[in-house]
Amino acid sequence: MRLDAIDRKILAVLQADGRKSIAELSGEVGLSPSPCLRRVKELEEAGLISRYAAVLDQRKAGLPVSVFVSIKLERQQEEALDAFSAAIRGWPEVLECYLMTGPRDYLLRVVAADLDAYERFLKEKLTRLDGIASIESSFALEQVKYSHVLPLP
């Protein structure tokens, strides 16, 4: 999909505040409400806007611990990768999971209420998966930056 300057403005405003009404949005991007709504619908139908969500404060939600977990599998065969991915998708503690290049196969971002909760996750879920060669956990001390806003050109 080709984006023009108005599409980019719409996306920038909605990334900052997805609850904007069409009237508010149209005023900010310089369109009347009908063409603005049409453009938003086109962006949604094209899949560029995939969903709307509330962004929660992790600490206030009672999950102050962030852990970055590097996983190395015993085998990098397709069925082993698929089995690991399928298991991870069902665990709500895992907010992000990436298949990586380099010495590790996966990088996960896991949230927990405290160290005991992370230890339970590790022992009751992660270490029980077949095919894991090693697990390395790194605890975040401070969140320096967090953004869900893509830097559109």
Rank of each mutant, 00 (worst) to 15 (best):
M1D: 11
M1W: 09
R2S: 13
R2H: 14
L3M: 14
D4S: 06
D4C: 05
D4G: 07
D7M: 01
D7Y: 02
R8Y: 06
R8V: 15
K9Q: 14
I10T: 03
A12R: 14
V13Q: 14
Q15F: 07
G18I: 05
E24P: 03
L25V: 01
S26R: 01
S32N: 10
S32V: 12
S34R: 13
P35L: 05
P35W: 05
R38N: 09
K41T: 11
E44V: 12
E45L: 08
L48N: 02
I49N: 01
S50Q: 10
R51Y: 11
Y52S: 04
A53H: 08
A54L: 14
L56K: 06
L56W: 11
D57C: 06
D57M: 06
R59M: 07
K60A: 15
A61K: 02
G62T: 05
G62M: 02
L63S: 03
L63R: 02
S66C: 11
V67H: 04
V67N: 05
F68M: 15
V69D: 00
V69N: 00
S70L: 15
I71Y: 00
K72N: 10
L73R: 04
L73N: 01
E74L: 09
R75Y: 14
E78K: 15
L81P: 06
F84E: 01
S85N: 10
S85T: 12
S85E: 12
S85V: 06
A87V: 09
A87C: 08
I88T: 07
I88P: 00
R89L: 14
G90D: 02
W91A: 05
P92I: 05
E93W: 00
L95N: 11
L95Q: 14
E96A: 13
C97S: 13
C97I: 04
Y98K: 11
L99G: 05
T101H: 11
G102E: 07
P103V: 10
R104A: 10
D105F: 03
D105W: 01
Y106L: 03
R109E: 15
R109I: 08
V110G: 00
K123D: 12
K125S: 07
K125N: 10
K125T: 06
T127F: 08
T127H: 08
L129C: 07
D130H: 14
D130T: 11
G131E: 07
I135D: 05
E136R: 12
E136Q: 13
F139Y: 14
F139P: 02
L141T: 13
V144S: 10
S147D: 10
S147Q: 07
H148E: 15
V149P: 00
V149A: 13
L150N: 08
L150I: 13
P151Q: 06
P151N: 07
L152C: 08
P153V: 07
P153E: 13
